[in-house]
């Protein structure tokens, strides 16, 4: 199903159109704070889903629960289920490394490795057993991330010499080297200037043809521009989850309406 149809879909997607779903997902930090308080939602395949909400509402924590990044913070407990290919990624038999290989992540602040542009991508491929010549892979990842034309003559230069927006696209390219199904983006443009932000937004629209994108953003206009589905979170609860157009034009919950009209948060 082409992604634009999702706008007109009910929330009960057919199961083969669901990339990822959660059941009573709950995340508790070491200090006892319940950052995510039992949310259940289904993320459609090959579409962009935005998670919005005021600072501290648990949206980034929820996102990090989708590829088991929270467990890197000592003492964090995750309850409930995150189903990917109808298996709970928190099941004891599942290796977080496998999860993260299939569900990639792009961070708030661009975090390229202090290696060459080429090596940033080649390293990601090599640790997953890519043998031999990486040239083609590096080129195709950079092309998909709309960065190839800008860097093709300086692949051996340090990734740190790139601009912030280019670094962020390199981080996306590096994730693509794993051929993930889902790409999580945690406020990927909050550290970038407006032009770089536009290029990342454009890129997400391109990428959702092949990948499922879940993006956390505190920029409502951005959520409105690029997402098909939007989830609104408040104090760790999922308040409303609906097609973006509906949620922005005709929200059901009063709190959602107050937030999107700028009356709090």
């Amino acid at each position: 199903m082409p992604s634009h149809d999702i706008l007109h879909m009910e929330l009960n997607f057919p199961s083969d159109h669901i990339a990822l779903s959660t059941k009573n997902l709950e995340v508790i930090y070491a200090d006892g704070a319940r950052a995510v308080k039992g949310i259940s939602l289904s993320i459609p395949k090959k579409a962009t889903t935005a998670i919005i909400g005021p600072s501290g509402c648990g949206k980034s924590t929820a996102l990090r629960a989708f590829n088991r990044m929270n467990e890197l913070i000592p003492g964090t407990v995750t309850k409930g289920e995150v189903l990917f290919h109808s298996r709970n990624i928190y099941a004891p038999s599942i290796d977080p490394v496998t999860v993260r290989t299939n569900i990639g992540m792009v961070f708030q602040k661009p975090n390229p490795f202090p290696k060459s542009i080429y090596e940033n991508i080649a390293w990601a491929a090599r640790i997953h057993g890519h043998k031999g010549n990486c040239d083609e892979l590096v080129e195709s990842c950079l092309r998909k991330a709309a960065l190839w034309d800008e860097v093709k003559d300086k692949l051996r230069r340090s990734a740190m010499s790139l601009s912030g927006g280019q670094q962020q696209r390199l981080c996306i390219a590096r994730t693509l080297a794993l051929t993930p199904e889902v790409i999580l983006m945690d406020e990927p443009t909050s550290a970038l200037d407006p032009l770089s932000t536009a290029s990342i937004e454009e890129l997400t629209s391109e990428l959702k043809k092949d990948y499922t994108i879940i993006i956390v953003t505190h920029n409502l206009q951005q959520a409105g521009r690029i997402s098909d589905m939007t989830a609104f979170m408040l104090l760790g609860d999922l308040i409303e989850y609906a097609p973006t157009k509906k949620l922005f034009v005709n929200p059901e919950d009063e709190r959602t309406e107050r937030y999107i009209t700028g009356r709090f948060g």
Binding site: F107, P114, A124
Partner: peptide, 13 residues
């Protein structure tokens, strides 16, 4: 931590 997280998020052990 940012680059360590970056590596782990790529499915590195």
């Amino acid at each position: 931590d940012s680059i360590k997280d970056g590596a782990l998020a790529l499915g590195a052990t």
